[in-house]
Write a protein that binds this DNA or RNA. Structure first.
Length: 415
RNA sequence: GCGGCCGUAGCUCAAUUGGUUAGAGCACUGGUUUGUGGUACCAGGGGUUGGGGGUUCAAGUCCCCUCGGUCGCCCCA
């Protein structure tokens, strides 16, 4: 291997990988527009403070996974580990309250310092959808409908499952959390080492543990139901009914929680069993308190993010587009004429490439490799006659075409 | 951050118990055909065996460190 390695956890996107990636993004952007979302781009770095306050100091993401650095002016900056905090900041910075309710769609790189694995990178990419300023469960339903629709369009309907839960409103969540701390605290000795840590940092995560001993305890752990307020319960019911109405299948997963502090009410994950340990492909939830916590007015909001690499690994490769019609000059005098012809055809809207190296065999071979449907051979003889040879590479048939009639003859190869 | 497995040409892989100049297919370049592709045949270029150190008469092969990948944990998209 070369000494020039990419940074650990990063990779170069090219060829098939790039096509899969672009396919996911293009499908997302098309659907987001159809659902009335507006595209937005925010910086890939923000003040560290934003993420620390927004996501939660004790979360793994903030406490050990951020790319944080001091710039030359002495400011502590952080490469974004997720989209939501930055979008909320933009919402407040730009006074987008006036546009509320606001539906936003974004995509781009995010950064987390984790141990890389398949489907897990240090620079990875997300598509992201957020609805800000809507307290009604209709926003939850619409956002989930978009997610499900996207996964359908990507051909993943059979490969993913929607798991959903409610984390309740703040009072119910706090009461539940306290009950969990009490319960697991009484059984602390029996907990796994990881869960002992979770007990103090993020007790709800114990519910997600894969440790067998933990699972036995989790089975008898208090459920949110007991603490769920009537309003929060009704809210969740409405969301579930909405999903049924929209035709989105789901599984209620009472132990589903989220790792970021700002979530409340609806929490969900689309998971797959096709990616090994990296099962989550798209996930999100409601975060009614976040914008206020960042110093803005109380603003209900909900959003999700999907991993482009993970989705890309699951989708079937989109059909390869037809290659370019290839202009093949032979002889020095033809070279200039070919450049002109190529430019003329490109401006006329054709997808055109030139093959100007090697012998004719080589040039045709290259055109063939690129998937060219046809080549235009322009030699000295043809040039003298004011013609070009049009050869169809699928059939092998070729014919002489007057130079000023090329566009017409190529009409059948238009996309 | 923890544990396991792996690392030979651009790609996929060979290389007896450690034993001469590390091989093959695909790809690439040239030729058979100085102007006719997808087939065939011929020839050629390409490697400090991820990197560093050690053991040995001798290391791709054994040991240590390191870098990277991968699987599981953790976490998450």
């Amino acid at each position: 291997m070369s000494k020039l390695q990419p940074v650990r956890g990063t990779r170069d996107l090219f060829g098939e990988d790039a096509e899969r990636f672009a396919h996911v993004v293009a499908t997302f952007e098309r659907l987001a527009r159809a659902y009335g979302f507006r595209g937005v781009d925010t910086p890939i770095f923000e003040f560290t403070e934003l993420f620390a306050r927004g996501i939660g100091e004790t979360t793994d993401i903030v406490s050990k996974e951020m790319y944080t650095f001091e710039d030359r002016g002495g400011e502590s900056l952080t490469l974004r580990p997720e989209f939501t905090a930055g979008l909320c900041r933009a919402y407040l910075s730009n006074g987008w309250q006036q546009l509320s309710p606001l539906k936003l769609a974004a995509h781009g790189p995010v950064f987390r310092y984790e141990r890389p694995q398949k489907g897990r990178y240090r620079q990875f990419h997300q598509i992201d959808a957020e609805i800000m300023g809507v307290a009604e469960p209709q926003a939850d339903i619409e956002l989930l409908a978009l997610a499900a629709h996207l996964l359908d369009e990507l051909g993943l309907a059979g490969k993913v499952q929607l798991e959903i839960n409610t984390l309740g409103d703040t009072p119910s969540r706090l009461a539940w959390r306290e009950a969990l701390v009490g319960y697991f605290g009484r059984h602390e000795a029996a907990l796994s080492e990881d869960s002992k840590t979770r007990l103090h940092k993020n007790p709800m995560r114990i519910l997600d543990s894969k440790d067998e001993g933990d699972r036995a305890l989790v089975a008898d752990a208090p459920l949110l139901d007991r603490f769920l307020s009537a309003e929060a319960g009704a809210f969740f019911e409405t969301v579930l009914k909405g999903l049924e109405s929209v035709g989105v299948p789901y599984v209620v997963q009472p132990r589903l929680v989220r790792g970021l502090d700002y979530y409340c009410h609806t929490a969900f994950e689309f998971t797959t069993t096709h990616l090994g340990a990296q099962g989550t492909v798209l996930a999100g939830g409601r975060y009614d308190g976040l914008i206020e916590q960042l110093g803005g007015p109380a603003t209900p909001a909900i959003g999700w993010a999907g991993g482009i690499e993970r989705l890309g690994m699951l989708v079937d490769l989109p059909a390869a587009p037809r290659g370019p019609i290839t202009v093949v000059p032979m002889g020095e005098a033809s070279q200039l004429a070919a450049v002109g012809l190529t430019a003329r055809l490109r401006r006329a809207g054709f997808v055109v490439e030139q093959a100007f190296r090697g012998n004719l065999k080589k040039r045709l071979s290259r055109a063939s490799d690129m998937g060219a449907p046809a080549v235009l051979i322009l030699g000295e003889d043809e040039l003298a006659r004011g013609e070009v040879i049009l050869k169809d590479l699928a059939t092998g048939a070729q014919q002489a075409v007057a130079l000023d009639q090329v566009e017409t003859a190529l009409a059948v190869y238009r996309d």
